[in-house]
Amino acid sequence: MNIVDRADESYFQAWRAFGRCAAGGAVRESSGLLCVSSGLPVAFMNLAFVTRPLSAPEDQIASAMAFFDSRREPFIVRIREGLDRASEAACERLGMPYSDTVPGMASTSMSVPAPPAGLDIRLVDSGPALHDFRAVISAGYEIPMAMVEAFVTADLTRAPEVESYVGYADGQPAASSTLAFGGRVAGIHNVATAQEFRKRGFGEAMTWHGIERGAAYGCDMAALQSSEMGQPIYARMGFRVVSPYRTFHRPGV
């Protein structure tokens, strides 16, 4: 598999795990369409991925709409740029216009610098650590704690292909990251920093920690999906955009 295909599969594999472990989650996959429900009423937490060109795009996208409608959940569709223009057109015809593109980035450099002074990174392997991890996610992404608790469950910390980490500074939970590994790819997710600890390099350090742990599991490549704010930081770390994911949404839903 080339870098793009490996980055794709890493993204899909992580969301399969997230959906499988979420309190009210569900995963449905068939013929190039992967639907992952978080059980939450938030569109960006419920995704339909086109994983390869669809044989009947309009019917299959409509089936994804029916799946999420049956669960009373808003959702978005993500399609890698250039993968399947017919599916993009089907989204538009079904009332799901294009909204934005998420940069999928990858790096084959697994050389990791030392973390900044004052950051103590620990594995999430207990109730207290899970609470601290959730607190950072809630603060960093400005998501209600109840939603984080439903999505980031104890089951996720026990998933064999997933590890999560909390970085502590001044004795307080300050930053977070999650590693989802498979196919020799270290997928990095949930990188967040509480507002009072920003501008200290902690988010970058948490990303490097996930990469280092991935290398220990035999990964020779790292992949992530970046926000607009994070993209310059990841570029400085050696990541490059390899798989832009186009997003289609349902207005008003």
Rank of each mutant, 00 (worst) to 15 (best):
A154G: 15
G25V: 14
D100Y: 12
R78P: 00
R71M: 12
E88N: 00
A186W: 08
G140P: 15
L34K: 04
S107D: 09
G19Y: 04
F133H: 12
A117R: 09
M1V: 09
S226K: 01
A139K: 05
F248N: 03
R20Q: 11
R52D: 14
R6E: 04
M110T: 13
Q60M: 14
I233Q: 01
A114T: 04
V102H: 03
V50S: 00
R250I: 13
A235I: 03
F49N: 01
L123G: 02
L47G: 10
M229H: 07
A26F: 02
H249C: 04
E196Q: 15
A150L: 12
T51C: 04
C219Q: 05
R250K: 14
G187N: 01
L119G: 03
G230M: 07
I121P: 00
M105P: 07
F197C: 01
H209F: 13
F18D: 04
L47F: 13
N2W: 06
C35K: 03
Y168I: 06
G104N: 01
V27H: 02
I61S: 07
D220H: 15
F248R: 02
E81S: 15
H209V: 05
T153E: 04
C35D: 02
R16A: 09
Y245Q: 13
V77A: 06
E204V: 10
V148T: 15
F202H: 10
A186F: 12
G127N: 11
S243R: 14
M45P: 00
L34F: 08
R93C: 04
G39F: 01
P97I: 13
M237F: 10
G214V: 09
E9N: 13
P57H: 05
Y217W: 12
I61D: 10
T157P: 01
Y165T: 05
L83P: 01
D170H: 10
F248C: 06
G167E: 06
Y11P: 00
M110D: 06
T157F: 00
P128E: 00
V185L: 03
C219A: 14
E196F: 06
Y98A: 11
S177A: 15
N46A: 07
G127M: 09
R158V: 11
A146L: 09
E149W: 08
F151L: 14
L34S: 04
V27N: 02
M147N: 11
L179K: 02
L33N: 06
V27E: 07
G230R: 01
M45N: 11
M45R: 08
S63E: 14
E58G: 01
E29F: 09
S55I: 11
F239Y: 15
C219R: 00
M1S: 10
Q60K: 11
A194N: 07
F12P: 05
P103Q: 06
D8C: 13
